[in-house]
Amino acid sequence: MDSRSWLLLEHEDPAYRLPDDLRQHDPLGARDCGWVEQMRPFIRQFSRPGEQVLDPFCGFASTLVAAHLEGRRGLGYEIDPARAELSRERLRRLNAEGAEVIASDLLEAPPADPVDLCLTNIPYFGCDWPADAGPAQLYAAAHYEQYLDGLVERFHRIRDLLAPGRHCILMAENLRLGDRCVPLAWDVAQRVGGLFELCEERILLYPKPVEPLPAFSSRSDRSHEYALIFRKQGSTLDTDDALTLLRALRDAGFAFAIYGSFATWLTSTSAQPPADVDLLVAPDEDRLNALLGWLQAHHFRLSCWQQSLTLPIALADYRGRYYFRAERLDRSGGLLRLDLTFEQDSEPVAARLDRTQICQGLLVAS
């Protein structure tokens, strides 16, 4: 792979294409089967020989075939048992002994060893999937937000599986559903960007015959998609900006306690600079809305589990989610991130924080 921001895919090698007899066994004719050539450059660039490549939406195992050809071990999850078996047969014919396809939703899979690269074509929204599909089949999601929520839930699991510092690369395309253009690739980039650090993108180009358009028509042949390149790493926090913000919050009368990595950094000269600021706030709906409103007025984007917040919030709607996130990006690329914890998921955490100090806005180390 070189520095070009695009990759032109002109030819699919018939030796590694999904065989026609297997294609015919799929009810949809394997129309969503990706190219092996699409995946090979990313495997070479972002993994080493012998390492493990994960495809959480395995489909017909094109990613696993590419991993095999590049000397890597492939691990795929495929929720549809029939497709999983087609994938296994495809891999058997290529003697890809180091590849494994598990017929399961990733969320239902048992714990696994860390993987070195996640590389996948995401299942697209709006697919005409058979009506008997279960609720975990993202192809069959009836509504867009339902689809995005399910996708992000699985990328939470992928983050747990991916080794620190390694890459998660997903192929996504903006869609046209009827007369409506749906920015799926951009929405997914924003949602998944709350779990990983977005590093770069590549545009994948597939030549198609060119047709003239009638006047004022904006339609295209959709002959491109995006490779969104994420990495499992923490952002570097500008600690001076963070301290300035915390003083402003305290001067505005907001009550909070600082804990976690930022509190450790404050109290230790040898601690690494943190990636964000963890604040413990009282679970008071009015005070929380006032605090979130102040942050929003100071140009912070508010979210909870990668979903945007609309103020005022009803705290009862967020029980069990534990925190709100506030992020502000400046023009130099600096990101200031706060996680506002309003309830604890374990007593030991709560026990380390003196609740009388929360109301005073004192700094509390973890």
Rank of each mutant, 00 (worst) to 15 (best):
E12K: 12
E12W: 08
E12C: 12
E12M: 12
E12Q: 14
E12F: 10
D13W: 04
D13L: 03
P14M: 03
P14N: 04
P14Q: 05
A15P: 00
A15C: 03
A15H: 11
A15Y: 00
A15G: 00
Y16C: 05
Y16D: 07
Y16A: 04
Y16P: 00
R17M: 11
L18Y: 03
L18P: 03
L18I: 07
L18R: 01
D20G: 10
D20C: 08
D20I: 11
D21G: 04
D21R: 06
L22K: 01
L22D: 05
R23M: 03
R23D: 05
Q24I: 00
Q24G: 11
H25M: 15
H25E: 15
H25S: 14
H25K: 15
H25V: 12
H25D: 15
H25T: 12
D26S: 12
D26L: 05
D26H: 07
D26I: 02
D26T: 05
D26P: 02
P27I: 04
P27R: 02
L28V: 03
G29F: 04
G29K: 04
G29N: 00
A30P: 05
R31K: 15
R31H: 12
D32V: 03
D32N: 15
D32Q: 14
D32Y: 15
D32I: 08
C33N: 13
C33F: 09
C33Y: 05
C33L: 08
G34T: 06
G34K: 08
G34D: 13
G34F: 10
G34H: 11
W35G: 09
W35Q: 10
W35S: 12
W35N: 02
V36M: 07
V36Q: 01
V36L: 09
V36S: 01
V36I: 11
V36D: 05
V36G: 05
V36F: 01
V36W: 02
E37A: 08
E37P: 03
E37H: 04
E37W: 01
Q38R: 14
Q38A: 15
Q38N: 13
Q38T: 15
Q38P: 11
M39H: 15
M39V: 01
M39G: 09
R40V: 12
R40P: 08
R40T: 14
P41D: 10
P41M: 10
P41G: 10
P41S: 09
F42R: 00
F42C: 06
F42S: 01
F42D: 04
F42P: 02
I43F: 03
I43A: 00
I43W: 04
I43K: 01
R44G: 08
R44H: 13
R44N: 12
R44L: 14
R44W: 10
Q45W: 12
Q45L: 14
Q45C: 13
Q45D: 14
Q45H: 13
Q45G: 12
Q45E: 15
F46V: 04
F46H: 09
S47Y: 03
S47E: 03
S47W: 05
S47G: 07
R48E: 15
R48M: 13
R48W: 11
P49W: 09
P49M: 10
P49N: 10
G50R: 11
G50Y: 10
G50H: 07
G50Q: 11
E51H: 06
E51F: 03
E51D: 11
